[in-house]
Structure formats: structure tokens, C-alpha cells
């Protein structure tokens, strides 16, 4: 459940070039050790997340807040439960995320 995020290779670079990827920068430490603070990731917008994927999503209650978390469960109705990888920094759940609030799935990271 804590698979690492691969560094972007030629395939990811091509997707990015063709505007099939969006860049996000990670703030906070709840995704350690997978993603460090300040890491830049390439996200596939609109991709359907599966268990274990790291996703970028809109927070269900805090407007304007974008989250980066790992999918810890996919519910029957398509909603996903998200958690950080760092247990000491991400102990509190915030409820299931609706599919329309999932912005995309993290596919790779860029070296800093």
C-alpha cells in the first residue's frame, strides 16, 4: 500500500508534452516517505483511481483545498477513502471522497 512513485521517464514526458499530465507540488509531510515536501508530481487528470493509487483531490469540506493522499479503500458507490502514507502525520480521516472531487491520479514525479 505504500508503493513508490516512479521518476518520470520518456513515456511520462510524452504524456506531459501532449498535455495529458498536470503538475502539482506537494506541501506537508503526510505522504512521507513516498513524497517529500516540495516534490513535483505529474497527475493524469480524470483517471479512475484504484486501491493503492496516490491521488490529487478536492477536500470534501474545505473549499479551495487540494489534497494529495493515497487511496486506502474504494467504496461500492465509487467514492474513495484517502490516507497519508506517514502514520505520525496523517492520523485523522476526513470521510470518503466523491468521484467528481478526484482531480487525477499521480503517475510519476519529477526530480528536484
Amino acid at each position: 500500500m505504500t508503493d513508490r512513485i516512479p521518476a518520470a521517464g520518456a513515456r511520462e514526458a510524452l504524456h506531459w508534452l501532449l498535455q495529458r499530465r498536470r503538475r502539482f507540488v506537494v506541501r506537508g509531510r503526510s505522504m512521507l516517505p513516498t513524497l517529500t515536501e516540495g516534490a513535483t508530481v505529474l497527475v493524469e487528470p480524470g483517471a479512475c483511481p484504484v486501491l493503492g493509487d496516490v491521488v490529487v483531490a478536492r477536500h470534501p469540506h474545505v473549499q479551495g483545498l487540494t489534497l494529495i493522499k493515497r487511496v486506502s479503500a474504494v467504496l461500492r458507490d465509487g467514492r474513495t477513502e484517502l490516507h497519508g502514507d506517514n502514520p505520525t502525520e496523517s492520523t485523522h480521516a476526513f470521510g470518503a471522497i466523491r468521484p467528481q472531487d478526484v482531480i487525477g491520479v499521480v503517475r510519476s514525479r519529477l526530480a528536484s
Binding site: 506537494v26 506541501r27 509531510r29 505522504m31 497519508g84 502525520e89 485523522h92
Partner: peptide, 11 residues
């Protein structure tokens, strides 16, 4: 890039 929060207390 757009910021994505990996904070716990904010969420």
C-alpha cells in the same frame, strides 16, 4: 505548479 496538501490538520 498547483499546490496539493499533504497536511493532516488542515484537511
Amino acid at each position: 505548479p498547483t499546490e496539493a496538501s499533504a497536511h493532516c490538520d488542515g484537511p
